[in-house]
Design a protein around this nucleic acid. Structure first.
Lengths: 141, 141
DNA sequence: TCATTTATGCAACTAAATTGCATTTGAATT
DNA sequence: AATTCAAATGCAATTTAGTTGCATAAATGA
């Protein structure tokens, strides 16, 4: 994806085009894993931490990113599927967390099996798998 | 559950019997929802924050409680099913978070559907449903 | 009841994330 | 291109969740 594409993407999500947003967007598009705030901060040290946090928030609000709560006390963030927009997120994919490399991936090809709970109304489902990812599995006999 | 039962429960989980542990255990046994650290702290203000945190940790280590990472940046804790012990957790039940009352419940009668991902090794699964709980649903037409 | 181990309380600290405010920048309009 | 105004940024300070070190107190087992 090139600059003009990012620009378009931001505009269609009601977001102003700024250097920081372009760079953050670019980072996410080049990462196959969900990224923590720290990952982002290390690579984009030229921007203030607060600006990066606010960029994440605006992206989440407008449906560009989704937040994956982590069990180590901090969250990770990943690109949304195209269905997400300014009017809420519509996620259905599974997240995988590797206990060896620590990476969190979205598995867009795996959708979450529906669970019906009588008398409850279910709006969203989030399934996080924990184990050993494809790459790490190859490196251990 | 009475004092002697809590005492027994602690002993079988290799934990010393202390006032704080009894009170924390009692709190969890009387709550139908998962509790955040804040919930606990409010009700058991007589104990130091650090002691409460350490109580939670020891309970998690010994298989009495499990931790449910929350999407607002803090975790909740709930009693484990009996299968959990000193040698790891064996959870299979679904968690439900109500967007109206904010409560998180364990749904012990609903187990997580198995998802197979080729080339990946899956060790744990966590499914969190988001929506409106039974009680809140009744109070809205 | 004594000795040993473990738990507690306090203070200080770390790390994640947020808020307020002055300044700068984006983009729509003239 | 210059003007304008809302929105984005950077900085400092603050909040909140959770942790660590250490002296004291309490629980267990002999």
């Amino acid at each position: 994806m090139k600059f003009s594409d990012y620009k378009k993407l931001l505009k269609t999500h009601e977001l102003r085009v700024t250097d920081c947003r372009i760079d953050v967007l670019d980072k996410f598009h080049h990462s196959s894993y969900a990224m923590s705030f720290k990952d982002l901060e290390e690579d984009l040290a030229e921007y203030d931490r607060v600006t990066l946090y606010r960029t994440l928030h605006s992206f989440i609000d407008k449906g560009l990113l989704h937040r994956i709560p982590g069990d180590e006390g901090f969250a990770s963030y990943a690109l949304c599927p195209q269905e997400c927009g300014n009017h809420g997120h519509h996620h259905d994919h599974v997240h995988f967390k590797c206990k060896l490399c620590g990476h969190i991936e979205c598995l867009p090809d795996f959708s979450i099996p529906k669970v019906e709970v009588p008398e409850y109304e279910i709006n969203e489902q989030s399934l996080v798998l924990n184990g050993v990812c494809k790459i790490c599995k190859k490196s251990i006999p």
